[in-house]
């Protein structure tokens, strides 16, 4: 159990998921988040947005942070706090996210000129989630904290 799980407040409910750094396992995180969000009462389109954001965050952690090293884990914390769901994705890698990627808005015209059409993940996460924060975890890896609010 991670330190974050141990520190959960009485009003919070926390689920921790640990995945190998292998592409495809992001589906497990997507479905865990979707299952919890549906249980909380999120609408289908919001659940779909959440799944996309979680997929991008876990894929980034596998590919960039953990460099596809299957022995390294991606830790996904799902915290229910009142009417919000907080999803934190942490890798164990030492390749930090380039600050430029966090703030830039990708241009389709530029992307189409490149062989690699990727690079949309961080922007997509920021568009889809209500709050997004990129930090370094106490363990040293990258951490993406995403919040989605339940609107009643």
């Amino acid at each position: 159990m991670s330190d974050d799980t141990k520190r959960s407040k009485p009003s919070e409910k926390m689920i921790e998921l640990r995945l190998p750094s292998k592409l495809g396992y992001e589906r497990v995180a997507m479905d865990a988040a979707a299952s919890l969000a549906s249980r909380m009462g999120f609408e289908t389109d919001r659940v779909s947005a959440l799944k996309t954001a979680v997929s991008e965050a876990v894929t980034n952690a596998i590919e960039h942070g953990n460099q596809h090293d299957e022995a390294m884990k991606v830790v996904v914390l799902l915290t229910v706090r009142g009417d919000e769901l907080i999803v934190s994705v942490t890798d164990q890698g030492h390749k930090t996210i380039d600050e430029a990627y966090v703030s830039r808005v990708p241009q389709i015209s530029e992307a189409m000129k490149r062989d690699d059409k990727g690079g949309w993940g961080i922007w997509l996460i920021q568009e889809l989630m209500d709050e997004v924060e990129f930090t370094t975890a106490p363990s040293g890896g990258n951490q993406v904290r995403m919040v989605i609010h339940l609107e009643r």
């Binding site: 409910k13 998921l17 995945l19 865990a32 979707a34």
Partner: peptide, 23 residues
């Protein structure tokens, strides 16, 4: 390959566990 899941003892949360293992 292995995955791990930790969740609180609240009825209803088993649905998340079922989905994780099924996926």
């Amino acid at each position: 390959t292995s995955i791990e899941l930790i969740f609180p003892s609240i009825l209803g949360y088993e649905v998340v566990a079922r989905r994780v293992v099924a996926t």
